[in-house]
Amino acid sequence: MSVHSLYCSFLVFVSLAVLVPLTGCGGADAKSMIANANDMNVKRLATLYSIFHNKNNLKGPKNEGQLRAFVESQDPNLLKRGSIDPAKLDELFISERDGEPFVIRYRVNTVVFGPPLPVIFEATGVDGLRQVGFCNGPMQEVDEDEYERLLAGEADKEKVDRGRE
C-alpha cells in the first residue's frame, strides 16, 4: 500500500469520524417507506383497493373494470410512489411469484372501525404458501386452510381490539 493511498484513507476516516456523529445517519424517508410498503404487486393492488374503498363510502369495487378505471383516474405522481404504472395495469394484476393472475374479491364492504379485509389472493403461491393482500391491513402469507377461510370472507366481520372502540 502506497503512502498516498494510506494518506487518502486517513483523510476519509477522519472526515467520517467527525461528520457522522455531528450530522447523524439520517432518518427514514417517507417516500422510500411508501415504496417499501408497496414492493410487490399483491401489496400494490391491496393499497389501490384500500384507496378505492376509502373514497367510495367503504365499498369495494364491483369488478376488475371498475378497479382499473379507478387506478387510471388517480394522480400519476401519487401512483409513482408505489411504483404503479397506469400504462402497465395488466402486469399489476399478476403475481411476480407464481406468474398467475390474482384472485380478487370484489364488492367487499366494511364499516368505520371495521377489520382489515382480505381481498387480493395469489392463485398458486410458492411452497404451499400463498400471499393475501388486505384492504386496510398488512399482507399475510398463509397456508391452505387459512387461505380458504379468508377467501370465503370468514374474517370480514371479526372484531378488532383497537384499545377503546
Binding site: 427514514a28 376509502n54 386496510n136
Partner: peptide, 11 residues
C-alpha cells in the same frame, strides 16, 4: 415514523 396499514390502527 411508520407505515400506517389500516384506517384507524394509530388513532
Amino acid at each position: 415514523n411508520y407505515s400506517r396499514l389500516g384506517q384507524f390502527d394509530d388513532w
